[in-house]
Structure formats: structure tokens, C-alpha cells
Computed example of a mutant assay.
Amino acid sequence: MSLEPFQKSAALSLGVELELQLVNTHDYDLAPYAEDMLRLMDKIELPGSVVPEMTSSMIEISTGVCQSSAQVLGELTQIRDSLVKSADKLNIAVVGGGTHPFQMWHERRIYDKPRFRELSDLYGYLSKQFTIFGQHVHIGCPSADEALLMLHRMSRYIPHFIALSASSPYVQGHDTAFDSARLNSVFAFPLSGRAPFTLTWDEFTAYFDKMTRTGVVKSMKDFYWDIRPKPEYGTIEIRVFDTPLTVERASALSGYVQSLASWFLREQPFMPAEDDYLVYTYNRFQACRFGMEAVYVDPATGEHMALRDHILQTMQRIEPDAEKVGAAAAVHLLRGSVERAHNDARWLREVQYKERLLAEAVRQAAQRFRGSV
């Protein structure tokens, strides 16, 4: 199968997908209500879409093509409000967060859809362990070559995205000591990690053709990279974010991505190099494990610094671009949480420390998602 041509898209346009948890309101464990939710949501006219995910206790919502993070927020809020109303009818709740804190993977059911059944046959128990919840941000690129340049520039900021969105400290009832444990599950898949270092679409096409000749991949969907090109949309898709606990934070993260992309296009601040990836896995691990308290190694200089300092320096540098694309409020919201070293993982831990009951942490997270706290 040959690679699709890279479609035209408006530079810096945005699209956001959120994978969400469906929980019962008895003990706040995951509940297999995706089909019922989709049936109810199908009757409501909404921007974007609501679709099933790998297991039947998850759904994915997505915006349409947006021009700003404010538009993203408007669309996500509209979808969220409809989701909450539908969930209330079913006596269930919808929750953000990168993992459900105490669900048991072996109790999950694969959603009855050909692709999910095929993946289950291929990946075995990993498919049920893939009951994890992420945010994906698409950013429109002017051309295929510029998309690859954008992808490899964004790779330096992967630790930012992980620490700012981290919301998966608990797995199967235990504190993992990670702020984002979700990404450890993604790493189990053979085609995860980073994209190959190619800076032209011709080079990338040659790589894709080699991979399809091996029979290992059939399409771009088979790559679980942290960032991947999406030629059918004319975008790159950043996939390392945990699903935040609120749509406000989800849209703010898209504004941060858009501001960075604007800076890259306007200033061309640095040329990516293969050597950037020497510290990539280390930086990624640090952000997953320690969140806002992580260490960041600058790939260009080798300097070690606090990740929080690197994020704050970057936010200052992209301020004109945040203003230009209408994301100043989004970046301001995130800056406040960096200054306080407070992300959603920390919020969940604080609730659990106070309540000593993970089900209560999920209940409060459900209230938070619906905008009640």
C-alpha cells in the first residue's frame, strides 16, 4: 500500500481528540456503556465527532478543524455538555485522566468493531491494557516537507507536553510514582516511540515503502509514534498528552502547541538534527516519572536544567506568537500551573491523600470534568 499524498490544510489550524472514561456511579469503576452513549449522542447535532475506542468503557470525542484554542474550547464544551446529559440519562459519569485509577484490565471488553478485533488478535492482552486515555492534537502544516520539519522541532518539547498534561499516577489501585504512567503502556507496542529522522516527504515515503514491503505495516495508523504525520489531514498529530481532567486544560494545551508552531514557522529558531534524539528517551522518561519536577537535558548544548524552567523560558519566548494566534489566555493558564508545579496528577494525589479512597477521587474528577468544581 502506498503512502497517501499530503493534503493541503490551513497552516496552524487545530484539531483535538480526547479519549474519555465511562464510569458507573455506584463504585466509580469503568462501565461498558460506549454503545449506549454513542446511540444517545448520535441523535444530537454537534461539531466534530463521538466514536468508539478499543474497549467498551471508552469513547473518543473530537473537534472539527479549528483556527484557535478558543474555538477548540467552544467545540469541546458543547460536546462535553451533551456527553454529561447523555451520561446522566444512563446513570453513569464521564471522566478525564490518562488512566482509570483502579480498573482491572482483564475485566475489559474489546469494542465490537473489525479494526479493534483485528488489533486484539494481533496484540493479545496488550489490547485490553490499552484502556488508557490520551489527548491528540493536530496542527496544520503548509506543506509535507514543513510538516516533517515541524514534527522534529516539536520533538524537543515532548517533555513539556507530558508534564503539562500528566494525569495518570494510579494504575490498578496503586500509586505508580509516575505522573504519567499511561505512556508506559504505549511503549509496549512494537511501533511506538519516535518517528524516523527524515526531513523531506520523499525520504519519508521511501521509509514508509520499505516498512510496507516488510509486511509489518499497512498504513500510517499502524505507527504509534509520539508524533506522526497525518497526510490525509495535512497535519502532524502529537499523541503524548494524557487526557486532562477538564476541557479547559485540553484546549489550553492545543493553544500552547499552536503558539510553538507559529514560532517555528515565523522564526525557524533551530534546525533539528538526528543527535537531538540522543537525550529524547531520557527527557521523556523524566517527564513521565517526575512531571513538573523533572530534569530536562537540552539536546543542543547538553545543559541540565529544571524542566519547569525550560517551560517558563519557552513560554516567554513564544509570547508574541501566543498573542498572534489568540492563545495568550491558554498559555497564561498553563504558566500558572507550571509556577505552582501543579498538574492533574498532583490534583489526583491530593484528593486521594485527603480522602483515602480512589473511588472518591474518580467521583470528584467526574464533577471536575462536567465543570462543577
Score class of each variant (00 low, 15 high):
Glu75Asn: 09
Phe241Trp: 01
Thr198Pro: 06
Lys43Trp: 09
Thr63Gln: 01
Arg317Trp: 01
Thr200His: 10
Phe189Gly: 04
His174Trp: 08
Arg194Glu: 05
Gly98Phe: 08
Arg340Trp: 05
Ile139Tyr: 01
Leu357Val: 10
Thr77Asp: 08
Gln313Met: 13
Gly140Lys: 10
Thr25His: 11
His26Asp: 14
Leu191Asn: 13
Ile238Asn: 02
Asp179His: 13
Cys288Met: 14
Ala366Gly: 07
Phe241Thr: 00
Gln367Ala: 12
Gln316Pro: 03
Ala322His: 00
Ser251Gln: 05
Asp309Gly: 05
Met271Glu: 15
Pro229Cys: 09
Phe264His: 01
Val217His: 04
Lys324Glu: 08
Phe285Asp: 04
Asn283Met: 00
Ser337Ala: 09
Thr176Arg: 03
Ile311Tyr: 01
His332Tyr: 11
Ile227Thr: 02
Ile318Asn: 01
Gly124Cys: 08
Phe187Gly: 06
Glu323Leu: 13
His160Ala: 02
Asp226Ala: 05
Glu319Gln: 15
Arg115Cys: 14
Glu339His: 03
Ala188Cys: 10
Ala177Asp: 10
Leu334Arg: 00
Ala287Val: 01
Ala188Pro: 01
Ala70Gln: 10
Arg356Pro: 00
Lys354Leu: 13
Asn343Met: 02
Gln286Phe: 04
Glu4Cys: 04
Leu253Gly: 03
Ser254His: 06
His152Val: 00
Thr99Asp: 11
Glu248Gly: 12
Met292Pro: 04
Asp309Cys: 11
Phe116Tyr: 15
Gly371Val: 14
Arg349Cys: 02
Arg308Glu: 15
Gln364His: 12
Gln67Asn: 11
Gln367Leu: 13
Lys128Gly: 05
Glu232Val: 13
Gln364Met: 13
Leu307Val: 01
Ser82Leu: 05
Arg108Asp: 04
Glu267Phe: 12
